[in-house]
């Protein structure tokens, strides 16, 4: 089994107050910490387990600035063998273009896969599209939001897709295939900082994304970013800790859910 994972190095914005710069054209990420995209951590874990069970080679491929090498090192520290970074300083946000560059890489470098995994979405652009577009470009089967891989045998994969409201569907696909992984599919192993550091000794390929742009047109243009206009919003209960606590308890009493 050749298993390839596409992993992205992303800004961690859940707890950051973001500022708009560049006359409304970009978000200031200078002070924001980066990490492996959460979904991709699950995809890598799944790949490591598949390679362990079925043999073969696991790859982690990323695209971004040289910092994204940390994504490769994390992937290797978790148990994958090969790492490839497509270096670019450009902020390539169009998922069609990103997928096309990955397609060019796989084809030009002769990287063959039985299974290509991506995270269900990237935390930064939330497009949830690169894997699906890539599958379409390569004309191989695709399934998204996969919450369980039940069996891989005889050139087929049986998996569970997560639907809405607690419902799942069981799907069977022919390999090679592209699968996007939902969080919660497994428990990603812990990797120590030293583990990530020592993975730096492993050989990785550093290529320039510019060499794989043939036909990879950007079809989408991000012309402006803005802080979403505030909705009505919450009435803020301020004061000291005691004031906040009694404020909440008063509302609960008023609504009759706490007496």
């Amino acid at each position: 089994m050749e298993v390839v994972v596409l992993a992205k190095w992303v800004p961690t914005t859940q707890e950051e107050e973001l500022k708009i710069i560049d006359e409304g054209r970009s978000v200031d990420l200078e002070e924001v910490p980066f990490r492996m995209n959460e979904w991709d951590t699950y995809a890598i874990e799944e790949a490591v387990r598949i390679v362990k069970e079925h043999g073969g080679v696991g790859w982690v491929i990323s695209m971004g600035s040289e910092d994204a090498d940390t994504a490769l090192r994390r992937g290797i520290a978790m148990g994958l063998e090969r790492g490839v970074l497509l270096e670019t300083e450009e902020d390539l946000i169009d998922p069609f273009q990103r997928a096309f560059i990955f397609k060019n890489l796989l084809q030009k470098k002769g990287i063959k896969f039985d299974l290509l995994l991506t995270g269900g979405q990237a935390e930064d652009d939330e497009f949830a599209s690169t894997g699906g577009v890539l599958a379409g470009l390569l004309e191989v089967p695709y399934a998204s939001m996969v919450i369980g891989i039940e069996e891989i045998s005889g050139g087929e994969i049986t998996l569970l897709r997560e639907l809405e409201g607690g419902l799942m569907e069981r799907v069977k696909m022919a390999l090679p295939a592209v699968v996007s992984i939902q969080t919660g599919i497994n428990e990603p192993r812990y990797v120590s900082v030293t583990g990530v550091l020592s993975a730096a000794k492993k050989e990785r390929d550093f290529l320039s994304a510019a060499d794989f742009m043939e036909g990879a047109k950007g079809l989408l243009q991000l012309i402006r970013v803005e802080i979403p206009p505030p909705k009505e919003g919450a009435e803020i209960i301020g004061g000291d800790l005691d004031g906040k606590v009694s404020g909440i308890l008063n509302i609960l009493k008023e609504k009759g859910v706490y007496k």
Binding site: T13, L219, E226, P228
Partner: peptide, 17 residues
């Protein structure tokens, strides 16, 4: 318009072609 960065930003997108 779609949200970006943990839904803290709205991105305005235009189709190039």
């Amino acid at each position: 318009i779609k949200t970006l960065y943990s839904e803290k930003i709205n991105g305005h997108f235009r189709l190039k072609e």
